[in-house]
């Protein structure tokens, strides 16, 4: 029973961190139909800035700088580069590939700066753990769950109640109609990118914090795990991103715990399992768990 609870909590914590990344993917996709391959390197940038600055500014200020800088960069990438491209959703693949180029540039530069170092982000949780009834949980993981819940709640509120959220939803529904109604598409889109960048930088903190050892040049690759999470829930649905992330986190944790019982399928299943779950879901619901069916009118 302890084992089960333990696994459940580990999975939830993992899922909470994935959710921050996956939500960023989804926001960007909803706003611009682009799959942002540079998400991992933006995450790395946020983490790197926090790591370098925390000794001078303290953790909170360093994190704020990291988050803002990453948001600014993401916004600039969209405004200066991607918005120059044709804006048709059917041509979004071009922007998607441009993000690969940006990813290469960013990762090369950051990897050169980080070198072989393991950077500490100076987070306040350290390696402290808390015992909750029968299970122990690291503070950093509890913080991850709390922060994710807060941030995701705030993002939902933004979506629902702010002018920007309304613009974004309008634009996602019908770009031309939105433009005709006076929605400033360029700005709406750019702000979405900024928000996603900020979320990625925030995720970097939890990816580098305690159960992990620190930030290194490959930390950004974790963003890949958010791909299935984002798709599983439905690419255009923030709720889906959250649900998908939790499913992926739990799947991973359970497969690790019961690895020895799943021996027949070969070892090291934990990396494959999320994708298998994703395929199964897509077979039943081709647009993800929360994706709209999208009726076709002739």
């Amino acid at each position: 029973m302890t084992g089960l609870l333990d696994t459940l909590l580990a999975g939830l914590a993992l899922g909470a961190v994935y959710a921050l990344v996956a939500l960023g993917f989804v926001i960007i996709f909803k706003a611009s139909h682009v799959m942002n391959f540079a998400h991992g390197s933006m995450l790395l940038l946020g983490g790197y800035l926090t790591a370098v600055l925390h000794e001078h500014l303290g953790f909170a200020a360093a994190l704020a700088v990291g988050v803002l800088a990453t948001a600014a960069l993401a916004g600039a990438v969209d405004r200066v580069l991607l918005q120059r491209l044709p804006q048709d959703p059917k041509a979004a693949h071009v922007a998607t590939i441009v993000t690969i180029g940006i990813d290469i540039l960013l990762v090369t530069d950051l990897a050169r700066r980080i070198g072989g170092d393991l950077l500490s982000l100076g987070d306040p949780w350290g390696d402290k753990v808390r015992t909750l009834g029968p299970v122990t949980v690291p503070d950093s993981r509890l913080a991850a769950v709390a922060v994710s819940a807060l941030v995701i709640g705030a993002v939902f509120a933004l979506f629902r109640y702010s002018r920007w959220g309304l613009s974004l939803r309008c634009a996602a529904e019908d770009t031309e109609a939105a433009a005709l109604q006076g929605v400033r598409l360029g700005r709406t889109r750019m702000l979405a990118w900024c928000l996603a960048g900020a979320l990625a930088a925030l995720a970097a903190v939890f990816l580098a914090a305690f159960p992990a050892t620190g930030l290194e040049r490959t930390t950004g690759q974790i963003a890949l795990k958010a791909f299935p999470a984002a798709i599983l829930g439905g690419l255009a649905s923030p709720v889906g991103a959250l649900a998908g992330s939790l499913v992926i986190g739990l799947t991973e944790a359970f497969v690790i715990t019961y690895q020895s019982d799943l021996h027949v399928l070969g070892d090291g299943l934990s990396d494959v399992a999320p994708y298998v779950v994703m395929i199964l879901v897509l077979l039943v619901r081709p647009n993800g768990l929360f994706g709209a069916k999208g009726a076709v009118r002739v």
Binding site: R141, A212, T219, Q221, Q259
Partner: peptide, 22 residues
């Protein structure tokens, strides 16, 4: 011997340790 196979991309070994402790 209790085995736990991991990948270079795994950076948080909480679940593995939990399984070993179990």
């Amino acid at each position: 011997i209790v085995e736990q196979k991991i990948k270079p991309t795994d950076q948080d070994l909480s679940a593995q340790v939990a399984a070993l402790q179990k």
